[in-house]
């Protein structure tokens, strides 16, 4: 899988950071762990290549330092239940079977019991982690109709494998996360998402889904030119505008329509699902969920409540 060279580094400095989010949009207060920089999966819409100015994949293997940074961050937080993830600058699982990077993290969060680790992936390989999984690790998969996986996520696991791996994680005592991100408009996408969400309802225990995110395709302007050059019909099918953050995103009318459709389909499967919008405007939040979120803090509060409801006093 992949031809990119792997560089092992021992970077000092801020390994744990606030998720950058995007300006003038509601963000969830996620913490990122820069364990790996770069990704072997090479999805066509991936913005990592725009952000990471290096051809090789960097793996930070100084685990004691990384754990100390995470611990410091957890200890410094007095208000919220922190959520950490390694999937911001890479895929959390794609290289894990080969390099065993997640095991010490999973064990650390399981012992600490004060925060959650989310392993977010499109690569359905968790068998090697199953013996170590505990409720403080959330196994999450990005989900998309198989047509999008076939055309735009060519090196990733097929949908059925992702769902199978998510089920396995649930059976191993973990909560799972589901990320419909990026949702892509293409001819017939509505029906495909309807089937996809139906499959999820049949395969997974939706009571053990900690969170579901919805995020429509958005990207920096330079990617628009690349999509044109590569003739990415699926990615360019919808109608884009430049958002307040400078990124291209679908026009608001479309965003509202699609969020409403997905939100409705998911809620029909399980009324109690915790669904959040990734990097969206306050008015879109209100239009879809009926919730008025004044700021990022309000969304972080919703996450706190969700976690407390499911974990009780165990966190």
């Amino acid at each position: 899988m992949g031809l990119q060279k792997i560089d092992f580094v021992e970077t000092r400095g801020n390994i744990v950071r606030d998720c950058p989010g995007t300006k003038n949009h509601i963000c969830c207060g996620y913490k990122t762990i820069d364990l790996i920089e770069g990704c072997v999966l090479s999805c066509s819409y991936c913005i990592l290549k725009e952000y990471i100015n290096a051809p090789n994949i960097k793996i930070n293997r100084d685990m004691p330092y990384i754990l100390s940074q995470i611990n410091e961050t957890i200890e410094a937080e007095k208000t919220h239940i922190l959520r950490f993830g390694t999937g911001e600058l890479s895929d959390s699982l794609a290289l894990d079977r080969r390099y065993g990077l997640n095991r010490p993290l999973i064990e650390f969060f399981g012992e600490t019991k004060k925060a959650l680790l989310e392993l977010k992936s499109k690569w359905a390989s968790i068998d090697h982690l199953v013996p170590y999984l505990n409720p403080y690790t959330v196994i999450s998969f990005s989900l998309a109709p198989q047509r999008i996986i076939d055309y735009e996520e060519k090196r990733t696991s097929p949908l059925y494998k992702r769902l199978k791996a998510a089920k396995k994680a649930q059976d191993s005592g973990c909560f799972v996360g589901l990320h419909f991100d990026p949702v892509i408009i293409y001819e017939g996408f509505e029906k495909d998402y309807e089937y996809l969400i139906g499959d999820i309802g049949r395969i997974l225990d939706l009571k053990k889904v900690l969170w579901v995110s919805l995020g429509l395709l958005r990207f920096p302007p330079r990617l628009f030119d690349r999509f044109l050059e590569e003739g990415r019909k699926n990615l360019l099918y919808g109608e884009f505008i430049r958002g307040e953050d400078g990124k291209y995103r679908y026009i608001k009318k479309e965003r509202l329509k699609i969020y409403r459709m997905l939100y409705g389909l998911l809620k029909r499967q399980e009324e109690d699902l915790f669904i959040y919008l990734c990097m969206e405007r306050e008015d879109i939040w209100r239009g879809i969920t009926g919730l008025t979120l004044e700021d990022n803090e309000a969304l972080t509060g919703l996450f706190d409540n969700r976690i407390k409801n499911l974990y009780g006093g165990n966190i």
Partner: peptide, 12 residues
């Protein structure tokens, strides 16, 4: 040119 290219990609 960008709009023409977009039409070409979308419609073939």
């Amino acid at each position: 040119l960008q709009m023409l290219h977009l039409i070409k990609v979308r419609k073939g």
